[in-house]
Every structure is written in C-alpha cells, then in structure tokens.
C-alpha cells in the first residue's frame, strides 16, 4: 500500500487528542457523581428498603403502584405545579422586563445592573430567612409600615394560597436574575440596526418590540422558561425554612415530600421512587430542551 492511500491522522490529531484527554475528568465526575448514585436510586426505587420496618430486599413495582394511590403525593404534585408555573412565569416576565429596561440604560449607570444580580448570589436558605421575616407580621417592616396608617396586612403564611404566593415571591426574587441574564445576553445578540430599521419602517416602540424583538427573543425565552422549570422541580429550601410544608400540607411540594418520606418516615425505597419520578420528569423536559436547542441553533 502506498503512503497516499493510507488514512492519515491529519495535522490536528495532536490538538484533538489533547482536547479528548481534557474531557476525561469531566466524564469520570459524571460517572461517579451522577451515574452511580442514579443507578443506586433506580435500584432502590424498586426495593423495599425501609429503615425501621425491616428490609427483605424484594424488588418489584410496589413503590410505583403505591404512588398511584398516594393522595399526599398527588397533593404534592399539585403544589409543585402551582409553585413552578407561578414562579417560573413571574421570573421570566420580571427577568425579561428588567433586562429590556436595563438595556436602555447606558453610560455610567450601567454599573447599576450588578445590583439586580445580587439576589441571585444570596444562598437560598438566607433568601428564605429574609422572606420568612418579611412575611411574619410580628417581624415584618412591611406590616409595621402599614400599621402606622392603620392598615393591617394579612398574614400570608397561614393560608394555602398565601403561603404559595409567599414562596413564589421568595423564589422569584432570587431567581429572576437568571432569566434576566439570559435575556440580556439574547438582547445583546440582536443587532441594534434591526430596531433602527423598524423605527424607520414606521414601527412604534411597542410594535417594534412585538414584531421584531420578541420573535428574536423567543428561543431564549423558551430556553430560560424550561431551564427554570426543571430547576423549580427541586423546590426545597424555601419550603423547609418558610413553611415546613404548611399550613397543613399546603406547600408540601414533591421534592419536600420525598424528603419527608425518606428522612422522617424512614421509607427510603419509596422516597427513591418519588425521586425517580421527579428525575424522569426533569429528564423528559431536558430532552425536549436539547432537541429544541438543536432546532433553534441549526
């Protein structure tokens, strides 16, 4: 065989190999910290592992069968849906509005945008504590302020929708900057020429936004909505700190319920089964996001 006929490694082989080697730690990390526990979780979800009832290591679908009849689980899914839909909607709306507003600010006030990022940097437990005191009438400066005018601000955390509202507010406060960042990046990707062209073409500010800016933001909006939605399935710190799932079970979202099952009720297998369900939900949405991302970028 002549040298010309052989498959050649090519000039970039060395470079490529370097990049491949760089991926090894990441792959290992994924394998150790994601795949192994995930496999364990899946295995457990089919088991009867219970810390106090005793475990026979019998495997089957009993946990999943139990889920169908579990009213508390159904309640938790309902709560989760309410928290996620309201929270994500608020975060995307407010995040976009602030992003659009900040984009118009130029000059030295641009530094001010950092202010809007601060809530995102606060740990969730701290956020929850801040809002817990703001929603506790005896501690809240809001209540104190309105008391001066003889207006009684109702206690939020003692009614079902009030508590859900309070958690949504705390969740939105800390997470809207994420939506804002993504939308800001997307806005920067839109050439200012387009808005100018639209202005010359006779479109008002509002019509420019509706006909030009919004359609161009659509992929980013969709992406940020889905990302936030996946993340919102993990509701925990806000609930744990602000309401402990109350009043009654009004704010026991599914992830919190899984925690209750696993750590309070010692029913590890059932907790794992709920976790598996949440994981599958998240995976399904992620898969959809990835597909969508491909379609949008191609």
């Amino acid at each position: 065989m002549t040298a010309q006929a052989q498959l050649r490694k090519g000039a970039t082989y060395q470079l490529q190999r370097g990049y491949r080697l760089m991926m090894v730690p990441a792959l290992l990390a994924v394998a150790i910290f994601a795949i192994v526990p995930l496999a364990g979780m899946f295995a457990l979800s089919f088991s009867d592992y219970h810390l106090i009832r005793g475990t026979n290591w019998e495997f089957g679908f009993h946990n999943f069968a139990k889920m169908l009849a579990d009213k508390r689980l159904m309640n938790s899914i309902y709560v989760m849906a309410a928290l996620s839909v309201l929270g994500v909607a608020a975060q995307v709306l407010i995040g976009s509005a602030v992003a659009v507003g900040l984009q118009k600010i130029t000059g030295r006030w641009r530094v001010g945008r950092i202010l809007f990022l601060l809530p995102y940097a606060v740990p969730h437990v701290a956020v929850a504590l801040i809002w817990l005191s703001l929603f506790t009438p005896t501690l809240s400066p809001i209540n104190a302020f309105f008391d001066v005018f003889g207006i009684t601000v109702p206690a939020m955390l003692t009614s079902q929708w009030g508590a859900i509202f309070a958690i949504v507010v705390a969740d939105t406060w800390t997470n809207f900057p994420f939506a804002m960042l993504i939308i800001m990046a997307a806005l920067q990707g839109i050439s200012p020429d387009l808005e100018e062209a639209a202005a010359i073409d006779g479109a008002s500010r509002i019509r420019t936004f509706i006909h030009i800016t919004l359609p161009l933001l659509a992929p980013a909006l969709l992406m940020v909505t889905l990302f936030r939605f996946i993340d919102s399935l993990k509701h925990f710190p806000m609930i744990f700190v602000m309401t402990k799932g109350g009043p009654g079970r009004s704010t026991q979202a599914t992830n919190f319920y899984a925690y209750v099952q696993t750590f309070q009720s010692s029913n590890v297998a059932y907790g794992a089964a709920i976790a598996v369900m949440l994981f599958l939900m998240a995976a399904l949405i992620s898969f959809y996001v990835a597909k969508l991302n491909q379609r949008v970028t191609s």
Partner: peptide, 11 residues
Amino acid sequence: KHLLSTALAAS
C-alpha cells in the same frame, strides 16, 4: 441534594 444523598447512600 436530598435526592442525591438518598441515592448516594443507596448506592
């Protein structure tokens, strides 16, 4: 986190 630790303990 809690799901993960459960899973990790399990594995």
